[in-house]
Amino acid sequence: MALDIKKIKNRREDKMIKKLNGAESQNGTNLEDDWDNFIQEEGLIDYNKIPLKRAEIKGWVKFAFWFLRIYIVVMVVLVIIGFSRIH
């Protein structure tokens, strides 16, 4: 079973590479030489290894976060009142 799955996967991989070779010989391009660029452009990278800078919270964004905190507190209070009426 595992062998079959591996065979199918390999077949799909082989089929794709064959198709690529055919397309490249028609167009005169070669992805193999441009592989790193392809990987980069297609985002085929482990993004867990690339750090993402934290956003600066200033201006209207700061105001938005305070609004969000107040909204959450108000909604939680309303929910508590609502649920206490159900029981």
Binding site: M16, T29, I39, E42, L44
Partner: peptide, 20 residues
């Protein structure tokens, strides 16, 4: 490539061929 990215790369190769 790691296995998950490899499978995605095969799918993206298909898209790359189709774009041509």
């Amino acid at each position: 490539l790691p296995v998950d990215i490899k499978l995605r790369a095969v799918d993206r190769l298909k898209i790359h061929i189709m774009r041509q």
